[in-house]
Design a protein around this nucleic acid. Structure first.
Lengths: 195, 195
DNA sequence: TTTTAACCGGACATGAGAGTCCGATTAGAA
DNA sequence: TTCTAATCGGACTCTCATGTCCGGTTAAAA
């Protein structure tokens, strides 16, 4: 692949990510090319259709996911490693809210990254040994905690940050063994109640 | 409004709900009329555009939301009332997954129902008195618990039911006061692990 | 039953997004 | 530097969803 072609592919994916964040995954396809500063022909050369773009973005997300697994694995406390994992994946959802929308499609198109799962599996064993994770909760549950919190990403700022922080603490408390102390909940800024 | 016109309006909303459930909120507008068994003119007479349909569906959801508030208020145990509320709203998300997609738009278009909020507020006071709800959790948190669980609705069945049940229990445990016993987690059907 | 006004339905015009094509250009090798 | 093949860009066509319009029909009142 020619060097400029490779660069264009990256520019197109960057543009798609930005466009999807602003207008959603149904944004006009041609705008991707425009924003990337390339012609329509170039766009179609690299990506046959919208699904191909989603696959490309899905692969990037998968790579980021694997990185988070590595980061978590390098943390000494297994409980803290779990926090790194959860917060890392939730940050992905916050940065790329369209991940929620492509999730059903991406599930079929992009193979899962197994290295992160293996890393988390080892971390869970350590957390059980530490006594920091309730023992009837396993990878199949933890795996979905970020998806859970992703249900809050479409809240308008500054509400989202507060609600996310508070409910994150509540969910984490539910993952702790019985009798573990509750996590303190982040204070709400004044005037930020239901209204 | 003529009786048949009123009936057509309901048929159109039913059709839209079904269509959105199958194809998403971006389904071709005209299909709503086709599925409702009426002409396009009738559709546009009742609903100027997609947003108007969303408002109509949003109002139905609001009415259902108020009903859930009443149901919850009539439950003796405040904690059980909270479960009725959460499960009721989550059931709405399961039946109408497109609610997630219209949430940002509906937030601006459809006024919130205040009666359900008032009912929940009273229930929370009772739950605090009962000692069944941790005292640093309030309406502003509980309000978002269903949205939290809505992050799981796009999982394919039969996975969704199990994951939803397990994470529901985990979240609820996080809402309990310190030292409350954990809720038992629903067993997973065999062969239903990560795969 | 008659009247009338509102309602119904589908044909039609309009516009926007999707996808194709080919001449011009440029990267990379000799 | 020269050559060549792959790449680029944007004009063009086509398809399809949107929204309008008006003659026919039907509900409801007198």
């Amino acid at each position: 692949m020619r060097a400029d072609a490779e660069a264009n592919r990256e520019k197109l994916l960057d543009a798609a990510a930005g466009l999807f964040a602003e207008q959603g995954v149904e944004a006009p396809f041609a705008l991707i090319a425009e924003r990337a500063g390339v012609g329509k022909g170039t766009l179609y050369r690299h990506f046959a259709d919208r699904d191909a773009v989603i696959v490309g973005l899905g692969e990037r997300a998968r790579a980021r996911f694997a990185e988070i697994g590595e980061e978590a694995a390098s943390v000494a406390s297994a409980w803290d490693a779990i926090l790194v994992y959860i917060d890392g994946v939730v940050a992905m959802y916050v940065d790329m809210p369209w991940l929620v929308a492509i999730r059903p499609r991406a599930r079929q198109l992009v193979p899962l990254d197994e290295s992160a799962e293996e890393a988390m599996s080892a971390i869970i064993d350590r957390a059980w040994a530490e006594g920091s994770l309730r023992d009837d909760v396993d990878l199949d549950d933890l795996q979905y905690v970020p998806a859970l919190l992703s249900g809050l990403v479409d809240l308008p700022e500054p509400r989202r940050a507060t609600v996310l922080a508070r409910l994150r603490a509540i969910v984490l408390d539910g993952l702790r063994p019985e009798n573990a102390p509750r996590m303190p909940l982040r204070e709400r800024a004044s005037g930020q109640s239901t209204a």
